[in-house]
Design a protein around this nucleic acid. Structure first.
Lengths: 192, 192
DNA sequence: TGTACATCAGTGAACGCGCGTTCACTGATGTAC
DNA sequence: TGTACATCAGTGAACGCGCGTTCACTGATGTAC
């Protein structure tokens, strides 16, 4: 089948397995489709070979989830980096969040797969970044929020709802996405 | 196993199968868990017996989905029935929608399971009811919405997001749900 | 009122399939002498 | 420089299981005469 990796390079297959698992996820759209044998097939490897790198499918999926969260944080950070002022940064972050979610629905669903009861720290970091931006908007006199933590939680939920709607109720007559992101962000963060 | 139904009463098992399917859904939490054999087991019946009533699991799930939508519409209608004025009615509807979603997460996920490409008519009816309420709020001078259709779509998405968050990110420090419903509804429907 | 028969609801055995997991193994690569 | 050996990465066969689906069947219920 596969050309076996040289000695120290077991890590090569480790990466290949993760890539194959994401490919399976993206192709099938559901976390449930990420089966050990399906991943092995995708990686061009025998099923038992997985065990050399992951103790179980759950461990593999948990790892995928961490990666997806880091990807999310990196993408939204990058989007907000060049923004001019906190309002623009908040809008850019919202926009990136929603668009990434819609463009990769399976990965987003992965983020919402409870693996353990602990809340993912990177996910919390994303949230904290948003809260800080809302606080900056308040400081700049652009938002009248009296409780940025609360209002940001509402915003985050609403953005998730937009992603969910556009992902799963594709037949619904949704208004243009950019208007939705703008309106929802401005209104829930109490800007202007 | 099961006492067989009298002649004209094949419909009895038909109902039992649906009830069993919902029981399986609620117990396991995912639509994927609704397997033909699991449903048969839950109904106290042999697997092939299902075929007398449903051509396939997909047909069974489609039927469950229709029922769940009707349940949703009935519940939100009932909640809004006694309300005093359009604003109160809108809030009651929002509240009922979110609370039903959170209390029965598996059924709500079922609503968002695309079976065919057609949009469920009962789902659309629920949406139209919300739009009408927002229009009434505008007529009553309580909402400044210039595009009730659009603003209601945002509201619906945001409410779904609240449900999703409370269902799936249970470890997250969500603000009190009643405040969330109130704030989101008032702000997205541009009331007051 | 009795009896033969058709219908109907559901059973039970069997099939092929993909799954997760185990186990002994193979064959290439590096290391010690 | 050559050779024996340990290690390592991955294979291939096998297992038991639950799945969807088929098929011939059983036994109770209603109907015709």
């Amino acid at each position: 089948m596969r050309q076996q990796n040289p000695r120290g390079q077991g890590g090569k297959l480790h990466q290949d397995i993760l890539a194959a698992a994401f490919a399976v996820l993206d192709e099938n759209g559901t976390v449930e489709a990420v089966k050990l044998r399906a991943v092995a097939r995708m990686a061009g490897v025998t099923a038992p070979a997985i065990y050399g790198h992951f103790a179980s499918v759950d461990e593999l999926v948990a790892k995928m989830r961490d990666i997806a969260f880091e990807e999310l944080l990196a993408t939204t950070d990058a989007a907000a980096a060049g923004a001019d002022g906190p309002v623009a940064a908040l809008l850019a972050r919202s926009s990136a969040y929603v668009e990434l979610g819609i463009s990769a629905p399976a990965r987003r669903r992965l983020l919402f797969t409870p693996i353990t009861d602990r809340v993912n720290e990177v996910g919390l970091a994303t949230f904290d970044g948003l809260v800080d931006l809302v606080r900056e908007c308040v400081a700049a006199g652009r938002s009248t929020s009296k409780d940025p933590q609360k209002d940001t939680a509402h915003l985050l939920a609403a953005l998730d709802g937009l992603v969910l709607g556009h992902t799963v109720l594709t037949g619904f007559p949704w208004p243009p996405l950019d208007e939705a992101i703008h309106d929802v962000t401005m209104r829930l963060a109490l800007i202007d």
